[in-house]
Computed example of a mutant assay.
Amino acid sequence: MNLALWIVAGLLCAVMLFGGMTKLIVPKEKLAAAPAGGWTGDRSAAFVKTLGALEVLAAIGIVVPRAVDVAPVMVPVTAVCWVLLMVGAMATHLRRDERTAVVANVVYLAMAVFIAAGRF
């Protein structure tokens, strides 16, 4: 079970890191033109960058505390926060009728629930 939790945490970390860095580096206009990225056109650049920074911090929080055994309770707390973020993301994508993005959000949500349940 521990190995499965590490694998899922690693995969989710990669998703968080990629998504966060993309939001931090890529200009908002280019993000808005990407598939399922239209929501960024409705938000300020500061909001998108802040969300990107939070995703990068989540990538750190989903693996590092457990790996270095410092405040390992932060791993399931981060996973719960990610669940809340995915609920918001699903609502946003459903409003915009972006069904493919919702499916991905459900998968990421399930991964985070698995980590939270396994690490609490």
Rank of each mutant, 00 (worst) to 15 (best):
E29Y: 05
N2Q: 13
V70N: 05
V77Q: 08
V80E: 03
K23R: 15
K49T: 11
K28R: 15
E55W: 03
M1T: 11
M1R: 14
V75W: 07
V83F: 02
K23N: 12
G38S: 12
P72E: 10
R66N: 06
A34C: 05
L51E: 00
V64S: 06
V48K: 03
V8R: 04
A4R: 04
A9S: 15
V64A: 13
T92Q: 07
L12H: 09
P76E: 06
I60Y: 12
W39H: 10
V83M: 14
A33P: 05
P27W: 06
G20I: 06
G52K: 05
E55Q: 13
W6A: 12
M86H: 00
A34D: 10
A9M: 05
V48N: 07
A4D: 08
V75R: 12
V15E: 09
V75G: 07
A67F: 14
A89H: 02
T22P: 02
M16L: 15
G41T: 12
L11E: 03
I25M: 14
A4T: 13
M90R: 00
L31F: 12
I25T: 14
V68R: 08
V83N: 03
A14R: 06
A71C: 09
M1Q: 11
F47K: 00
I7H: 10
G10L: 10
P72L: 04
A14Q: 04
V70C: 07
A71R: 08
V80T: 06
V15S: 12
V26E: 05
L54A: 11
C81H: 04
W39E: 07
R43V: 02
M21G: 10
V8L: 04
L84M: 14
L12I: 02
P76C: 01
K28F: 01
W6L: 14
G19A: 15
G19L: 06
A46K: 01
V80R: 02
V64Y: 05
N2M: 08
L51K: 03
T40F: 00
P27Y: 00
A58T: 15
L51W: 01
A53K: 10
L17D: 06
A36E: 12
V68Q: 03
S44E: 00
G61D: 07
V26F: 04
K28D: 00
T40A: 01
F47H: 00
V63Y: 08
V8H: 03
P27R: 01
S44L: 00
P76Y: 03
K30E: 15
L54D: 03
M16V: 02
N2R: 05
M74C: 12
M86W: 00
